[in-house]
Design a protein around this nucleic acid. Structure first.
Lengths: 362, 362
DNA sequence: TTGAAAGCGCTAACAG
DNA sequence: CTGTTAGCGCTTTCAA
């Protein structure tokens, strides 16, 4: 970087002290004439206060971190757009990292953020509580989006008012580190606010819809981080759950395809599948095609995530839409507001968008 | 952020001077015993050198900036993944911004990067040379990816190798706007290296393919930044170009749809369209369907960008694939290497992937 | 091989 | 209202 004008240069050129310049530029008190002169000189010199100096002085970066598993997944693209939009409107730089769904890379990136003194981060976590402990311990404000680390799951939910499942969810997640009897020694659950979609309601609605169409053998095809959705699925189909119908890929498109294909082949009796995310939905469509299964004639499909191409698919995909962009935006708001008041988790509603990929059981 | 251990803490605890700690940690010389002790203490204190202090001292952030128009566009997602991957392997943090294709937002983000002392940036530019002038003037190392700002013209390139059409392309593109006689006063052309796909060859191949299928009225559906592709298209179809068949959207999905729909309606005689990017391809498919045009029976379609869903489309889309991830990776390499030696632009090959969206002229 | 000391650009006391 | 000063955490001469 070439040499830029510093506050000292401005001060000299304006014939004032550096403190005055600092004050003027950050809206402190100053006489009109001084302010004017300083401003003029600053503009003339094209002076831009260095965030480096300021941050060092204030011992914080002021920026945000954003960690997602894969920017190639449209949903995370939407979510990131939300975060970026919110951050920009607050003038906060955001340091971004893609973890590839790998806890180790995630840990590495967390370390990098720590080094940068980035003290607020929004993440779609891939690692578990242990991965995130260093961040929390270091005093980072973290907000999870889209999902929670596996260990951050709190204990069982006793069932209740069917109309209030979102609230239920809130209770569930936030709920606390400290429910009665968690051994001290166990990995301390993280107490981190999160912005999530109402997976439970979303899945339930989808399963009911498929049930209404006559489907009885419904499968769930998930990826990393889809445990809550899988749990919701199990709950929605009710006991006894045929565990063979709940399968997981490991995150890559290939593994998603393998999982889908394996599922279709090992259980030709299934008549419907719920894909836990758009990459899995993609895989399901591909695998079905490859095996000459017609959608929805031979198999019905509903996919989590509404992405533009869902509509272009043949047939257009019925989806559980979650507001990716909003989720990102909200998460960013939470992380920015934190400090003011302890942030509460947020659960956003999903919507079942019925297109053409589900039909009556054959 | 809670208080972290500083270099001073480590120095004290190890009973050495701060300079020694600094040396040890950055691989300088030190006696084995000292080194060991310092390392032990550092580990024990969980010491992490603060990038803030280091950067201030060295007057640079060491990080990279990455500016793209829209993370929701899968191609930019791919490109970003490439950049992030390369940056991570070099331990560089990347500050990301989404411009929405808006030059003003882009300028704002550039200002933000300047403030952060981020002195190296990779961008898919939305603004023109004027937008980027401040960055260059400030001494930033910038590398463009995927496209060039409209005004970004460059110096002549001599020397070529007949086998290297890529070079040819560089000439072509870079060439135009201002050959020899550019008045000094005119907006100084940017001299910025770039990583581009071989649009010219890509488009030419596609057009030839369509020609071979019997198509004569071929349209080009572009978006912002697709001027080079449009130019290549004009060149490929040859004079006289029917300018009504070259239409542009403004970047949003809606406007892309409007452009596509308008095109189909105003020129029912066209039999094929080349979409300049995946968002435009998406729009074309949608618009065609809405107008009851069958692909490829009524209209053939080839889309720039290979994205996972192209294969899921009905019919699967024939595409001009460009290596988005590689482009990002290469761009990052360029920006990192710069300083060592002046970086040269890179043109990566495209590939026509024939699937099912093109058929003989009806 | 090591330590002391001088800042990098900025803000926040504290005086004047 | 304004200037002086003391660092923030680190790297880097420069001596010892």
């Amino acid at each position: 970087m070439e040499k830029r004008a510093t506050i000292k240069d401005v001060a000299e050129a304006a014939g004032v002290g550096v403190a005055t310049v600092s004050r003027v530029l950050s809206g402190g008190s100053a006489s009109a004439s001084t302010r004017e002169r300083v401003l003029a000189v600053a503009a003339q010199l094209d002076y831009r206060p260095s965030a480096l100096g300021r941050n060092l002085r204030q011992r914080r970066t002021g920026g945000l971190g954003l960690l997602v598993p894969d920017l190639t997944d449209t949903f995370y693209g939407q979510l990131s757009e939300g975060v970026l939009a919110c951050a920009r409107s607050s003038g906060e730089p955001v340091v971004m990292g893609s973890t590839g769904g790998d806890p180790e890379q995630e840990a590495e990136l967390i370390g990098m953020l720590l080094e940068q003194s980035v003290d607020r981060v929004i993440a779609v976590p891939s690692g578990d509580a242990e991965t995130w402990a260093p961040a929390v311990r270091a005093g980072m404000t973290v907000v999870f989006a889209d999902r929670l680390p596996p260990e951050a799951v709190r204990e069982e939910e006793h069932d209740r008012d069917p109309a209030e499942h979102a609230l239920d969810d809130l209770l569930l997640l936030d709920g606390l580190a400290a429910r009665p009897r968690v051994p001290e020694s166990a990995a301390r659950p993280l107490d981190v606010p999160a912005v999530l979609a109402d997976d439970r309601a979303g899945i339930r609605t989808a399963v009911r819809y498929l049930r209404g169409l006559g489907h009885r053998r419904i499968a769930f095809l998930g990826g990393p981080g889809h445990d809550r959705r899988a749990a919701a699925f199990r709950e929605a189909v009710g006991a006894p759950v045929d565990e063979e119908l709940v399968v997981f890929g490991t995150g890559s498109r290939d593994s998603a395809y393998a999982a889908a294909s394996g599922l279709f082949q090992s259980r030709p009796d299934l008549s419907a599948v719920v894909a836990g995310g758009n990459v899995l939905g993609e895989a399901a469509v591909l695998a079905a095609r490859e095996l000459d299964l017609r959608v929805p004639k031979d198999v019905s499909l509903v996919m989590y995530d509404d992405v533009p191409w869902a509509e272009l698919c043949a047939p257009p995909l019925t989806v559980i839409a979650q507001p990716g962009r909003d989720m990102g935006y909200r998460a960013c708001e939470l992380v920015l507001r934190e400090g003011t008041r302890r942030a509460r988790s947020v659960v956003l509603p999903t919507e079942l968008i019925i297109r053409g990929s589900c039909g009556p059981r054959r």
